[in-house]
Simulated assay, not measured.
Amino acid sequence: MTAVTVGNETRQGSRAVARHIRSSAFKAREVLDLVRGKSYAEAREILTLSERRISDTIAKCLDSAVANAEHNDDLDGEELFIAACYADEGPTLKRHRPRARGRATTIRKRTCHITVVLARYTDDELAAIDVRMAAKGTRRRSSAVEARRRRVAASKQRDSNQTEDHDHDHEPNNQTDTETDTDTDTDNLPDTETDTDNLPDTETDTDNLPDTEPDTTTDTDNLPDTEPDTTTDVNADNDEKEA
């Protein structure tokens, strides 16, 4: 447990430090100034809505400080606020960039160490916060840690259900227990062969059948003589010419 000095009094609190962050201390301080003195719930919302890239790192450091307070110091996350937060300069990585005339320019890659210190509200301050929230028609916000715990529990439950479904798909099928015996005893089947010797003789005598084939031949001798007479009377033509 960390003793945090707030004003002229010392309070219980906890801290978390993120070291060797690849960002300049100046950029981190601009975001830390926004959350200094805020409650954990308010600071978490500000960091979530911030567009700065360093905000994600500061949010992780803040969550770590709350986790230390709850697990190591038995403090409630809803009763904590950011008592102090600061960024110290870390080691600078020096790189070089080639320039004209064979010269090189130094590139300084800054790093920083971010520290977040949490302290607990007093009972009077908590009562005043509750009265202020009641006047607005709201109540004290639930801890973001509790919301995170619910999300983690739901995620674990989903993973457990998916694992059970996956194992169920790979379970061996007991086909030998449920498989029905479809093989039949062919020896006990009745003899369905028919005795062809006792069947009546169904062959027909084709010799005694009447001749039903139609007679398509025609008697050409009895047909009338329909051939036209193409012979002409030559004598009659000669008589006409002489006349």
Score class of each variant (00 low, 15 high):
Pro172Tyr: 06
Glu242Cys: 07
Thr92Asp: 12
Asp221Glu: 15
Thr194Lys: 15
Leu49Glu: 02
Ile129Ala: 14
Tyr121Ala: 00
Ala100Ser: 14
Leu75Arg: 00
Ala43Gly: 05
Ala104Phe: 15
Ala18Val: 01
Val116Tyr: 01
Asp56Met: 09
Leu34Gly: 00
Arg52Leu: 00
Thr184Gly: 01
Thr217His: 14
Arg15Gly: 02
Ser55Lys: 04
Thr217Ala: 11
Leu118Val: 09
Arg120His: 08
Thr220Tyr: 11
Ser142Val: 03
Arg53Glu: 14
His168Trp: 11
Thr115Trp: 11
Asn222Arg: 11
Asn8Thr: 08
Ala147Leu: 12
Thr184Leu: 12
Gly102His: 15
Ser55Gly: 01
Ile129Cys: 06
Asp123Leu: 05
Ala87Asp: 03
Ala236Leu: 07
Arg151Pro: 03
Asp219Asn: 09
Ile58His: 01
Thr232Pro: 15
Met1Pro: 11
Glu227Ser: 07
Arg108Cys: 01
Thr194Ala: 09
Ser24Val: 04
Val6Leu: 07
Asp239Met: 14
Glu125Leu: 09
Thr48Ser: 09
Asn222Ile: 06
Ala69Leu: 03
Glu70Pro: 04
Ser50His: 07
Thr178Lys: 09
Gln12Leu: 03
Arg19Cys: 03
Ala18Trp: 02
Thr2Gln: 13
Asp167Glu: 15
Lys136Asp: 02
Asp237Ser: 12
Arg36Ile: 01
Thr122Ser: 14
Asp207Thr: 15
Ala153Tyr: 09
Ala153Gly: 09
Asp225Gly: 07
Met1Ile: 06
Thr2Cys: 00
Asp229Leu: 10
Tyr40Phe: 13
Ile129Glu: 12
Gln175Asp: 08
Lys241Cys: 04
Ser142Ile: 13
Leu80Ile: 00
Asp225Pro: 08
Asp76Leu: 11
Thr138Met: 07
Tyr121Trp: 06
Glu125Thr: 11
His71Gly: 02
Thr231Asn: 11
Ala69Val: 04
Pro98Trp: 04
Ser24Leu: 07
Gly37Trp: 04
Phe26Arg: 10
Ser14Glu: 00
Phe26His: 10
Thr105Asp: 12
Thr2Asn: 09
Glu30Ser: 04
Val6Glu: 02
Val35Ile: 14
Arg149Ser: 02
Glu79Trp: 10
Ala135Gln: 14
Asp187Gly: 07
Lys60Val: 01
Ala83Leu: 03
Glu240Ala: 13
Ala3Tyr: 03
Leu80Ser: 01
Ser155Ala: 13
Lys94Leu: 05
Lys109Gln: 05
Gly90Ala: 03
Ala25Cys: 02
Asp130Thr: 10
Arg36Phe: 02
Asp56His: 10
Ala119Phe: 06
His20Cys: 06
Gln12Arg: 07
Asp229Gln: 06
Arg99Met: 15
Leu75Cys: 02
Val145Ile: 08
Cys61Tyr: 01
Thr186Arg: 09
Thr184Ile: 11
Ala16Gln: 00
Ala43Met: 02
Asp123Asn: 12
Asn235His: 14
Thr178Arg: 13
Thr206Gly: 01
Ser143Cys: 13
Leu223Trp: 04
Thr105Ile: 14
Asp221Cys: 08
Phe81Asn: 05
Ala28Lys: 06
Asp229Trp: 15
Lys109Pro: 03
Thr163Val: 05
